[in-house]
Design a protein around this nucleic acid. Structure first.
Ligand code: ZN
Ligand code: ZN
Ligand code: ZN
Ligand code: ZN
Lengths: 152, 152
DNA sequence: TCAGAAATGATATATTGTAACCTCAACCGA
DNA sequence: TCGGTTGAGGTTACAATATATCATTTCTGA
């Protein structure tokens, strides 16, 4: 069980939640967006925009340019359907599209899997530290690189 | 004043401290490394490897390939002379090469400056959370994007 | 002084990310 | 119905970041 008690979704429920969140943000849930989200959601590890472009291209039987994927990933990040993992230049589907967190990701240097933590006390402290230094519109990036339990 | 009370260096003192730390790690303090560190240390903002390559090339009157810069930056990061700012794909000189911290960087989205914080209690909590999830050889990446006091 | 190791040079290539401009369809008011 | 506007996606070109490989130079220690 994760450290928080919010809505965790998987499979169809996750897709439904993502669609709801996107529509709720005043954006359209198009076929292209559905396909990209579906591909992203199947990945165990953070996926690069190019990985996703390849998969979606296969799925559609027609080349989808990374360009288009970036556009939609940017939208997903802006609307909280996905997260960017800065230390991996890659993206993960957000398992709780409805609620806002400053997620913490643990990324294994060996196998690449990303474990998702939420600890509002911790992320709140980071926010507070930044705001105390005069920063505004704060977006914490909290990631941890290392070896996961399996690869250790 | 920063939040910690360790050795903070600037200018010549910083270069000396960096040289000492590198030699202490069993590595050579070569002309190339000195030049790259000097350039890196003059930057206010995180500098990309390509920025540094350009500056060092000018300084030497001879092209230095980004390749070589990356090699040395990797060494600097490994020996704690420099830090990589993941969310900016860029590097900063470490202002306290001797002592170990999990530094926190606040990066302004507008002007690009990086403010350096140390808060061992906070970074310790992040480490503890990761270790509690079974991770080993943990390297926290704690950055905050936002607007600095000047740009707000 | 010489052999091996370490550092750097040179070149090519891979990966990641943007910019500019175009087409098309949906929508909306005149 | 017509014409204008908007948003989504397509296409192409390019910029920025990062790595791989092998050659050459420089340093070090015996
Ligand atoms: Zn979360
Ligand atoms: Zn692993
Ligand atoms: Zn620090
Ligand atoms: Zn600023």
């Amino acid at each position: 069980m994760a450290l928080h008690h919010h809505h965790e979704h998987g499979g169809t429920a996750l897709t439904d939640a993502a669609q709801a969140a996107l529509v709720n943000a005043g954006e359209q849930w198009t076929d292209m967006r559905a396909d990209i989200f579906a591909v992203l959601a199947t990945y165990e590890k953070p996926a690069s925009a190019y990985d996703i472009a390849d998969q979606v291209s296969q799925k559609r039987g027609k080349r989808v340019a990374p360009n288009s994927v970036y556009r939609i990933l940017d939208l997903f990040v802006a609307t909280n359907l996905a997260r960017r993992v800065e230390s991996a230049n890659a993206y993960v589907a957000n398992s709780h599209p409805g609620c806002l967190h400053d997620c913490i990701f643990l990324i294994c240097d060996t196998c690449g899997t990303a474990t998702h933590l939420d600890d509002d006390r911790l992320s709140g402290s980071v926010r507070a530290a930044a705001e105390g230094a005069g920063f505004a519109q704060v977006r914490p990036v909290i990631e941890v690189r290392g070896k996961c339990a399996d690869c250790d």
